[in-house]
C-alpha cells in the first residue's frame, strides 16, 4: 500500500532522509517514531506529493508519487503537523469545500458530510464556525476532512500534538475506528505510548535513517532484551531500591512516587531472578512488569549512540 525504495532527500548539504526502504501493507497502522528533524515529516511530505525526493522512489497504492501525483492524491488523506482553518466557514461548509475540491458531486455531499461529522463526533457543531471550535475539535474536523474522498491511505503527521489528554483519547478512539474500517494509516507522534496501543508496526527514524522497523514486539524488547520496567512495593521500598541499584542488568533507575522505573537488559529468566531477589530482600512487591511507556524505552535503546 505504501512503499519507499532507497528514498533520499537532501537540502543542499543537509541529508534529511537517507536510503529509506519501507513497506506498509494494506490495513496496517504504521507508527513513525523519531525526534524533531529526524525525517518523519519529510517522508510524509514526499508521500503526499508535496516534496520531490532527491533519489529513490515512493509508491502509494501502487502509484508513483512523482509520476502519478493526481492518482496518489486521490488515494491519500493527508493531515500535516500544523494546519489552519478558514475563517467565516462553518464545519459543514468547510467539509463541503474539500468535498468540492475532490470533485465529489454536490448531490452526494450532504449525506457524506453528515456521516463524517458523526464519525468524528462533531454532528452538534455542524453549523458552528470552524475558528470557534477548540483545538481538539479542529483536529477531529481535520481528520474528517482527510476522509472526505474516502482514501485508502491516511498520512497523519503528529495528529495528537498540542491536544489535551481528553482530546487525545477522543482522537485515538477515532483512529481505532478507522483502523477497523481497513484504512492504511501512517502516523507519527511524539506521544510514544499512544502509538504502542494503536500501531501494528513501528519504524524508528533518526537523522534521516530508518534504524528499526517491524512489529512492535519484534523491534523492541524481547528481540533486543531491553524492557522499560516498573516495580511497585507496599513495604521495604528502601530494600527494593538497594537490590535494583546493585543489579547489573538494571539501567537508568528512577525512583518515582508510584515505584521504580528502569530499563532492564535481560530476558525472561533474568527478570524472574530479579523478582526473586526483591522478594528475598523482604520487599512486598505489588507490581513487577513492563511499563506502559515501553515504546519510549525502545526508542531510547535503539537510538542510543546514533549520531553520537
Amino acid at each position: 500500500m505504501i512503499e519507499t525504495v532507497h528514498l533520499s532527500k537532501r537540502y543542499g548539504s543537509l541529508r534529511a532522509l537517507s536510503d529509506l526502504n519501507l513497506r506498509i501493507e494494506q490495513g496496517k497502522v504504521f507508527g513513525f517514531i523519531g525526534p524533531n528533524g529526524a525525517g518523519k515529516s519529510t517522508t510524509m511530505l514526499i508521500l503526499a506529493t508535496l516534496l520531490e525526493p532527491t533519489e529513490g522512489q515512493a509508491l502509494v497504492c501502487g502509484y508513483d508519487v512523482m509520476k502519478e501525483p493526481a492518482a496518489v492524491r486521490q488515494s491519500i488523506g493527508y493531515m500535516p503537523d500544523f494546519f489552519g482553518v478558514y475563517d467565516n466557514l462553518t464545519a459543514r461548509e468547510y467539509l463541503d469545500f474539500y468535498a468540492g475540491a475532490y470533485k465529489i458531486p454536490a448531490s452526494k455531499r450532504t449525506a457524506l458530510i453528515a456521516d463524517l461529522l458523526e464519525l468524528v463526533n462533531l454532528s452538534n457543531k455542524a453549523d458552528a464556525y470552524v475558528d470557534s471550535l477548540s483545538r481538539g475539535m479542529q483536529q477531529r474536523l481535520g481528520l474528517a476532512r482527510c476522509l472526505v474522498h474516502d482514501p485508502e491511505v491516511l498520512i497523519l503527521d503528529e495528529p495528537a500534538s498540542g491536544l489535551d489528554p481528553r482530546a487525545r483519547i477522543e482522537l485515538r478512539e477515532i483512529l481505532k475506528q478507522l483502523r477497523a474500517m481497513g484504512k492504511t494509516i501512517l502516523i507519527s507522534s511524539h506521544i510514544l505510548p499512544e502509538l504502542a496501543e494503536l500501531c501494528d508496526e513501528i519504524g524508528v527514524i533518526e537523522q534521516g535513517r530508518l534504524i528499526a522497523c517491524g512489529a512492535l514486539d519484534d523491534v523492541s524488547v524481547r528481540a533486543r532484551g531491553i524492557t522499560l520496567m516498573l516495580v511497585r512495593t507496599l513495604t521495604n521500598r528502601h530494600q527494593a531500591g538497594r537490590v535494583l541499584s546493585q543489579c547489573p542488568l538494571v539501567k537508568d533507575l528512577e525512583e518515582q512516587e508510584d515505584g521504580f522505573r528502569f530499563r532492564f537488559v535481560g530476558g525472561e529468566a533474568e527478570k524472574a531472578g530479579l523478582l526473586q531477589e526483591l522478594v528475598d530482600a523482604g520487599a512486598a512487591v505489588t507490581y513487577f512488569g513492563e511499563s506502559s511507556e515501553n515504546l519510549e524505552a525502545v526508542f531510547l535503546a535503539i537510538t542510543e549512540g546514533v549520531g553520537g
Binding site: T49, L50, R73, Q74, I76, Y78, P80, Y98, H149
Partner: peptide, 8 residues
Amino acid sequence: NILLTTQL
C-alpha cells in the same frame, strides 16, 4: 499544503 493535496 492541504489544498495542494486535493484534486485542484
